[in-house]
Nucleic acid binder design. Sequence first.
DNA 1: GATATTATTGCAAGCGCTTGCAGTTTGAAG
DNA 2: CTTCAAACTGCAAGCGCTTGCAATAATATC
Lengths: 346, 346
Amino acid sequence: MADEPISEKKRPATLGDVARLAGVSASTVSRALSRPDLVNEATRERITWAVSRLGYIPHGAARALAGRGHRAVGVVIPSLRFGVFAELVETIQARLDEAGFGILLGHTGGDPEREYEQARALVERGVDALVLIGNAQQPRLLRLITDVGVPVVTAFDYDESSALPCVGVDNEAAGRCLAEHLLDQGYDEIAIITQPTLSNDRSGKRVDGVASALRQIGRAVRPEFLIECDGLAPSARDAMGALLGGEKRPRAVVCFSDLMAIAATAECRAQGIAVPGEIAIAGFSGIGLSDMVDPPLTSVRIPAVEIGDLIAERLLAHLMDRAAVGSALVAHELLLRESTGALREL
Amino acid sequence: MADEPISEKKRPATLGDVARLAGVSASTVSRALSRPDLVNEATRERITWAVSRLGYIPHGAARALAGRGHRAVGVVIPSLRFGVFAELVETIQARLDEAGFGILLGHTGGDPEREYEQARALVERGVDALVLIGNAQQPRLLRLITDVGVPVVTAFDYDESSALPCVGVDNEAAGRCLAEHLLDQGYDEIAIITQPTLSNDRSGKRVDGVASALRQIGRAVRPEFLIECDGLAPSARDAMGALLGGEKRPRAVVCFSDLMAIAATAECRAQGIAVPGEIAIAGFSGIGLSDMVDPPLTSVRIPAVEIGDLIAERLLAHLMDRAAVGSALVAHELLLRESTGALREL
DNA sequence: GATATTATTGCAAGCGCTTGCAGTTTGAAG
DNA sequence: CTTCAAACTGCAAGCGCTTGCAATAATATC
């Protein structure tokens, strides 16, 4: 009954409306809202009342323009379809939200060109900081970043020599570690199914890691055992099909995502090839499903949530207290499961 | 060599800077940027030159404030961890991006309370429209929406009587359709593993659908066969364990997401129960992996991409041309696969 | 040639909110 | 009773960009 709005209809209430209703100046309302301690308690209460009476909602753009910053950070990722990115985004959003920051999203589909565009669009939109994936940004993007002066943190790949602060794992070590495990198990011909390594430095480094492990024992990755696909299940399965149909068959296949590994396993199953036993298959990322499939999948867990937390933390420290942001190396973890179990004697 | 910035350092270039450099007024620059046809070609070229010379990037907040709208829409979802939401978000982002709109994200974790908060935060942030999930918004949220007057479209559930325009499937029909298939196959004791139905109207309606199918043949869902879990793999697996450990075992289990179904299957496998044969398991959503697991999973596909497209389309039509937004029913699709194959005679 | 159009551009008034600075009030100290 | 600091508030000046309106220049109509 006390709810009928004063104004005729549309126009949302402004600071001024609240001020008028509360019988104070706009400045006071503004302060009451952002620095309550500066305002007399009685006044503040009257203002609070007016605010809810009018259903007043501060106008973000006006605030941003008047110098408070936009309170938003942009996150540019290849695609939400890959679980790790979704987890990263969700974690960052949750953490920043607590501090009143929102997040704006951009997808690249793995295209560096689009990465630039998306980042730029987000900057234009006014983000106070940017999160990018990996450490292989185009020079153009790097230039934009320094020109505009937005703080940036990159995710998922730790690289000492990165131009930007980064939080991630040592992908080369991760690749090597997985390969060594395979070698230990007796699988010596290792193939790789990966996303395009040109636009994906994480994959590139993992390949290097595998190659490095092979080199230790005097071998190398055969060119025909390195297959790129778009990262989704169908194309990964095709890739496995190609591997299986080749002259020589690999004894082990490492896929740079669990999704691809599961697809590869499906192809083996379809062709009646035992996993493990005839072929070992390993994944990457350690998504929640990897231990629910048959056989449970060996994988290198990439702690997306931890990375997201560390990034959010850094961003906030910088945004709130202007603290310098530094890089952080987080540990990957080898999840040993059946898919790379013992080799069956042939 | 011709790249040294005029200004000493920081302050990003403004419209005024460009105007000065190009020897015109700010208004002209503004027009050259947003309505090129209104500006003389020669002038426009000079402006373009000045823009790139200065690396000028328009200030989003100022634009928004000056009346162009924020060019952003907010999307509030339970969690990106569920593939369908990630797909929805990605699709919407991609489509809106083409039109120069960005998207702001909010996660609720399935909590209606947080849904309100997140929606409000997004409104405050200035989104021009909102996308919500399902049709069970709190009255409070509905009020906020009408108060502020933001256009809203809800996703994933089609409901004629919804207060808001919605784009989605008929969840009750989807549930019924899956149950009927199970019944056809001879599985007559159907259990359900679901996310909490209180905060999730889609699940509630699916339950209704299953119940309705059962009622057709004079049966009902036994209370102990309706189990809620948080929707993630581990808890779904536990739920399956509970089902298996009960007095009476169900003959079929429908899970309201493929992820849960895969987890449930894992539990059966661990207990040496044949799927199908002893127990049939079906999922929901039709994620890319569902036909790669063993056994391939029967599922009801919810076309997230199509829904996202339709929503983006509607939003844009409204945002650009003020067209009214209406609801749309999209078809679900029963994907018949082995996990609900023939019942084995006991 | 004179007048009506049309094409370009500049002016100035904000959009809604934050903030430095200054005025007012009040209580304490001298 | 003054004097002064502390506690509140209000004033006014923007933040960077868009836009209706007016002014000027260029082109077209009689």
